[in-house]
Design a protein around this nucleic acid. Structure first.
Length: 782
DNA sequence: ACGACAACG
């Protein structure tokens, strides 16, 4: 990694992440030489760590300190609870490898550690390192990254207990919205996205003496970038230790990537799982899955069932069918069928931990719990007590098509690694069985080894901007573990160039640097940063926040009509973005009341988290001295209030524009994809030009969350993008040509603004401001 | 004529 301007690395004082530290603790680089802890570090001769040599301790020394009377990090006596937990820790498989691990980590900068589930690697390895590296004595700390927030929090909690310290003190976690660490923190669990964000402002990760990348096999976008980054950082930080921890399957690949770093393997602690395949391919995996679940329920011994399906609708449907059929079976025990997917309310999610129902009569057929789940149960959530797994072999996966710049979800066959992970879920508490609804031959010959990493399946706009911010100038030669398609990188560079985040030479602009700091997609970041120029940053903050959470509108299948009526109160004729704004205003006007949300079919949790996002965005706006402004709200029917907002939206979304043809179809600009407005849109369907937030690829091509804009705005906002030489032939192009001709002949900018006003007047006489009327109505009703 | 797999900042 080459830092583009020295100033970033040379001036750690500017790093907001370091601001809470006294200057002397901001050690950059640090000495790679061994250092005795006694003497200069001020430890008394009888301190438990007095004779520890940083980076040269033994497993026995570490264990002795753990078994001593005094906690060396708090100087308080160890509690009884601590000793009980310690006894359990000593039985973990990884504990036998403490010496081997220390040897490796002391003699190598990078170590790959392969540990199966139940090995204890996530909790123990960081502690082994704490006792050897002693980061607290250097004013540094050890980071252990997790792909998921919940994991970072719960593992930190567990390790704080294991080390007999208060959570947030010596051991803590740092995730978005919650920094539970302090100046005392020496071991910090965090999301990988968080560490990446820190690296953007502290390119050498100078606060850390060691970085442990856990769950690397997950291959999330952030983990992949971090791995590439670590390869660069270790060249400049010889004192920095890196441990990459992964499940078994492709450990060799990690090893090779890190220049043949040594690999250590720790067995797991799970029970054997018998695998069954179908003799013939199944034509309908859903039907086969339901049949198998019922068959297990009728014939197998007690033990719960986990069935993997692909999405919410399919899961709810399957749950109903299984329940209905099982209840008809006279020779089977009672059944409890539970759905599981991420958008399920937490309360409903927790039900998966309930016990199976008891048999109907003493000694009768066992009662059983059946969990029907998406991939969420493959990695994120573990359910103890599962004995039977049904794996139809499919999951929904994101795919990116750089040619039309669209991400979509496709039901696709899973990989061998995924199948293995799924079957493992049957053997967590005792031996289990896994029923794969495909042939053994298909498993061997048709499934790919591992799921393609996310970086090969995503739009890379954010990734490229982040890499630029990290100081990586030459993306083509950046050492990705799996290099993305050149076309995908080109698309990202092109996007960032049009957004003016990168200049024509591909260098990051000051705007781009600021955009990278916002936790937003590049388009949304651009929109928000530009919004003060349109006088409406307060409103854009609200809209952007709502675009960053799941859809707020609830639509229960049995109350669709009422839900649609509730939504209609908020509808704005000029577009869905303004509808979202109306919802946000109404929610705030109702004092964020939960009952109000319920009555109006809005998701309370979603609105609350949008508000959380908004607070965070506001802090960034203030940090960058961006004005928080609104256009006059009282004059909104005639005044510039909504027009200003729509212009600001166009300033971010000018590359996601569709034009309505005379046929009534919309064509996306430049890519000429035929799309339809999503039926949920509140937009008046006569709008000629629209910007859209999302391209939804299903049976039909839909554009969702759509707002009307003017061709004139687009020409003014993004003249480079709307350079007609780059346009394929279409009606939209001819409309723009005429417009440009007319502008040329009228010459002055006065001519332009007259066009706007006429246009606005025409529009306003055509439509009434429905949202305002409805807001008054809803107030009267209350 | 309504398709949110998971997850991150």
């Amino acid at each position: 990694m080459s830092s583009k301007k020295g100033s970033k690395a040379d001036a750690p004082v500017e790093n907001p992440y370091l601001a809470h530290l006294p200057p002397r603790e901001r050690i950059v680089g640090g000495e790679a030489t061994a250092q005795k802890t006694g003497g200069s570090s001020g430890l008394a001769a009888d301190h438990p760590l007095a004779n520890f040599v940083m980076g040269s301790t033994t497993a026995e020394q570490g264990e002795a300190a753990e078994e001593g009377a005094i906690n060396p990090f708090t100087n308080r006596p160890f509690s009884d609870k601590y000793r009980r937990i310690l006894a359990g820790r000593r039985k973990l498989p990884v504990n036998k490898h403490r010496k081997e691990f220390l040897d490796l980590v002391q003699n190598n900068q990078v170590v790959i550690l392969v540990g199966e589930t139940g090995s204890g690697k996530t909790t123990q390895i960081p502690q082994f390192m704490v006792f050897d590296d002693l980061p607290s004595l250097k004013g540094m700390k050890i980071a252990c990254t997790q792909p998921r927030r919940l994991a970072a929090m719960s593992v930190a909690q567990r390790v704080a207990e294991e080390m007999d310290v208060v959570m947030g003190q010596e051991v803590g976690y740092n995730i978005r919205f919650e920094d539970c660490t302090s100046q005392r923190t020496m071991l910090q669990y965090m999301t990988d996205g968080m560490l990446l964000r820190e690296a953007m402002n502290d390119p050498l990760l100078s606060r850390y003496s060691a970085v442990i990348l856990d769950e690397a096999h997950d291959r999330t976008l952030s983990t992949d970038i971090l791995m590439g980054l670590m390869k660069e950082i270790i060249k400049k930080r010889p004192d920095l230790k890196v441990v990459v921890m992964s499940a078994t399957l492709d450990a060799g690949k990690f090893q090779k990537y890190f220049d043949d770093a040594p690999l250590m393997s720790v067995p797991g602690r799970t029970f054997p799982v018998e695998i069954y395949y179908t003799p013939e391919p199944e034509s309908d995996y859903l039907e086969a899955a339901i049949f198998t679940a019922l068959q297990i329920h009728r014939t197998e011994d007690a033990g719960d069932i986990l069935l993997f399906l692909t999405g919410e609708e399919e899961i709810e449907d399957a749950c109903r069918k299984i329940k209905a059929e099982a209840d008809q079976m006279p020779d089977a025990g009672p059944i409890k069928v539970l759905p599981l997917y991420s958008t399920l309310p937490p309360q409903a999610q927790k039900r998966i931990y309930e016990d199976a129902p008891p048999p109907r009569t003493v000694g009768g057929r066992p009662g059983r719990k059946v969990v029907v789940s998406t991939n969420i149960a493959e990695t994120s959530l573990t359910i103890d007590g599962i004995v039977y797994v049904i794996d139809p072999g499919f999951s929904k996966q994101k795919v990116y098509n750089p040619r039309i710049r669209v991400e979509s979800l496709l039901v696709s066959p899973i990989s061998k690694a995924s199948a293995q992970q799924r079957s493992g879920r049957a053997g967590r508490t005792r031996p289990g069985k896994c029923f794969r609804l495909y042939t053994e031959n298909a498993f061997m010959k048709e499934l790919i080894e591992t799921t393609y990493p996310e970086i090969l399946r995503s739009n890379l706009g954010t990734v490229v901007l982040q890499l630029k911010k990290l100081g990586i100038d030459d993306l083509v030669h950046f050492d990705f573990m799996d290099p993305p398609a050149p076309e995908t990188l080109m698309r990202a560079l092109e996007l960032l160039n049009y957004l003016e985040a990168l200049d024509d030479d591909g260098n990051m602009t000051p705007l781009g640097s600021m955009m990278a700091d916002f936790p937003l997609d590049p388009q949304l970041a651009k929109m928000l940063i530009t919004s003060p120029q349109y006088g409406c940053s307060n409103e854009i903050m609200s809209i952007v926040s709502l675009l960053n959470v799941p859809l707020v509108f609830m639509r229960p299948p049995d109350q669709r009509k009422m839900a649609d009526e509730a939504k209609a109160q908020f509808s704005h004729p000029d577009g869905d973005h303004l509808t979202l704004l109306n919802v946000y205003h109404a929610y705030k006007t109702a004092n964020e009341d939960q009952k109000w949300c319920y009555d109006n079919f809005c998701n309370y949790r979603t609105l609350k988290s949008a508000d959380n996002v908004r607070t965070q965005l506001k802090r960034y706006m203030e940090r960058f001295d961006l004005d928080l402004v609104s256009l006059p709200y009282d004059e909104r029917p005639k005044g510039p209030y909504y027009t200003g907002i729509r212009k600001a939206l166009a300033a971010g979304y000018f590359m996601q524009v569709a034009h309505q043809e005379r046929s009534g179809n919309y064509l996306t600009v430049k890519d000429n994809q035929v799309v339809r407005l999503h039926p949920s849109s509140s937009l008046d369907h006569a709008s000629e030009w629209v910007i859209y937030n999302e391209f939804v690829l299903t049976n039909q091509n839909y554009i969702r969350t759509v707002t009307e804009v003017k061709a004139e705005w687009l020409l003014d906002i993004a003249p480079n993008y709307f350079d007609l030489d780059t346009f394929p032939n279409c009606e939209g192009k001819r409309v723009l040509e005429k417009l440009i001709m007319r502008r040329k002949s009228s010459g002055s900018s006065n001519g332009r603004s007259r066009d706007y006003d006429e246009d606005e007047d025409r529009r306003k006489s055509r439509k009434s401001d429905r949202s305002d009327r409805d807001r008054k109505d809803s107030k009267r009703r209350k």
